[in-house]
Design a protein around this nucleic acid. Structure first.
Length: 485
RNA sequence: GGUCCCAUCGUCUAGCGGUUAGGACAUCGGCCUCUCACGCCGGUAACGCGGGUUCGAUUCCCGCUGGGAUCGCCA
């Protein structure tokens, strides 16, 4: 390899949301570019005009940005090798196609779709398992008169073998006799994947192509094109597939597959990336990473070849770890995230200090910011939403007396610190021959509206005396039946 | 079916000829405890099969089996 800096690209087609499998691919390319001081390019492969939309392109850019996988050249930032949308590069493809035709590496094919469909069916009729291969009808045919629309076909070699050295799979060979004269450019002038991809990789100076293993079948064809065009191909690194838990292709019916869904659930970018990077790469037993640590540690040698199955529970655990640890999510980022998700729930004028005070107890029980916002709910809602089942079970008539005493102790406590409140209550309980169990649950429901919460006294300290007394009063009323939950 | 690729606990994986086959998630016990979590301790659980090579194979080679990808004027 030359000493030139690596140039890598992520080339999604804007035919849908950004898929987590696509993120994994983007991540590996990005990592190598960042590790080597190379260039990471974002190219939009929008030649499928049926399904590509500008909205999808925007979603892809937004989600990639959210993940922090920034690009040096791309449709929005431009760059010296633009444009970065294939539909804006049509003239380029045509000029390469013309050159290739001149060199005898490709030819114009005037067969109609109907003719080919008929041939395809004929093959099927003779042998249901047989596969149709274009017979090269137009290889040496003169253009018809009058001229009609044509496709450009590759003049594929029928003998020999294509071999390349894959960075993760090693040496891969494919016999050419399985190739055929693939269509390079459709009759509407729009290139097909293999052609557009190769021309772009050539003209954008791509030195290494890392992509999913599902593309491995395309590599020999692309290599044939490089050869025919007279260019040195880039290196290839194919990545094992990310499959659904049932071993089939990961799709919507298996759960969340769009990056946006994870952002909306409140995972952190690095949390998601930490999980995704382990599909096809590992660094000993480590599984919690930051982008920075990945840039340092990543290399192709540590890539694996076997496909992996997605495990949503494991992702949740990894994401949780990222949210829990303050060296991975700073206090400020945590408060920012919690505030954002509280806002989404409809809260306004949120007291960030209160979030910060409650944060330590929320952190160890919220796996996502959505859960954090939920756990924070009763700190900001007045009165708190009362869980019906919890009320029914705990705020019963027989609890009224104890709760009233509890309330008085809270009212008279010299300070409102968790430790002191607990000491006061414990002292009273000891005198009465009771335990915390006898009052804590009812008090918890009164104060938080829920059957489960962080430590009662910690919660009360953050809530403050006034709010706690008001909530306890209401709880006592409910016990007596003089108030509804 | 053709072509390409893969193969360690249920899952992600460590392992790069000699290990009591390790970790994490999940799962099952237990501890902690005002609930829920967190945390801690412990258990169950894997080298697909058959041949080679070797003093010795999870590790190297071959075959089988199993799985996946792909066979479009989609990408």
């Amino acid at each position: 390899m030359s000493s030139a800096k690596p140039r890598l690209r992520f080339a999604p087609s804007p035919t849908g949301y950004l898929h987590i499998g696509g993120v994994r691919t983007a991540l590996f390319n990005w990592l190598w570019a960042r590790k080597t001081g190379g260039t990471f390019i974002l190219r939009i492969e929008d030649t499928d005009q049926e399904r590509s939309t500008p909205e999808n392109e925007q979603i892809i850019l937004r989600d990639l940005s959210w993940l922090g996988l920034n690009w040096d050249e791309g449709p929005d930032v431009g760059g010296p090798n633009g444009p970065y949308r294939q539909m804006e590069r049509l003239a380029l493809y045509h000029s390469f196609a013309d050159k290739l035709i001149e060199k005898g590496g490709a030819y114009r094919c005037y067969c109609t779709k109907e003719e080919l469909d008929a041939q395809r069916e004929a093959v099927k009729a003779k042998d249901p398992k047989g596969q149709f291969r274009y017979p090269g009808t137009c290889r040496d045919r003169k253009p018809p008169y009058p001229e009609r629309p044509y496709v450009v076909r590759l003049k594929a070699p029928s003998s020999g073998t294509i071999t390349y050295n894959d960075l993760v799979f090693g040496e891969v060979s494919t016999p050419n006799n399985t190739q055929q004269d693939w269509v390079l450019i459709r009759n509407d002038g729009v290139p097909l994947y293999n052609f557009g991809c190769v021309i772009d990789d050539i003209t954008m100076g791509i030195t290494l192509v890392a992509r999913g293993r599902d593309h491995m079948i395309n590599t020999p064809i692309q290599l044939i094109l490089y050869e025919a065009l007279g260019y040195t191909p880039p290196q290839f690194a194919h990545l094992p597939m990310m499959l659904a838990p049932d071993g089939t292709k990961l799709s919507k019916r298996h759960g969340a597959v769009a990056v946006g869904e994870y952002r909306e659930k409140g995972l952190t970018p690095d949390g998601l990336l930490s999980y995704l990077v382990r599909f096809g790469w590992s660094f000993g037993d480590e599984e919690i990473f930051t982008k920075q640590s990945l840039v340092e540690k990543f290399d192709w040698e540590r890539c694996s070849k076997s496909d992996g199955k997605f495990d949503f529970k494991k992702l949740a655990a990894v994401a949780f770890e990222h949210l829990k640890r303050d060296d991975l999510t700073s206090a400020k980022d945590y408060v920012d995230g919690a505030e954002k998700f509280l806002t989404k729930k409809g809260f306004a004028n949120i007291d960030r200090n209160k979030i910060e005070e409650a944060m330590p107890m929320i952190r160890e029980r919220a796996q996502t910011f959505i859960e954090a916002a939920d756990a924070l709910d009763y700190f900001f809602r007045e009165p708190p939403t009362m869980d019906e089942k919890a009320v029914k079970k705990q705020l019963t008539a027989d609890k009224a007396a104890h709760l009233a005493t509890f309330r008085q102790l809270m009212a008279n406590a010299p300070s409102f610190k968790a430790k002191e409140l607990e000491a006061i209550v414990l002292e009273w309980l000891a005198k009465e021959g009771l335990t915390l169990k006898d009052v804590a649950q009812a008090a918890r429901v009164a104060v938080t509206g829920r059957a489960a919460s962080p430590g009662l006294f910690e919660v009360m300290e953050v809530l403050g005396r006034d709010i706690c007394l008001a909530r306890l009063d209401r709880g006592i009323e409910i016990c007596k039946g003089s108030a509804q939950a």
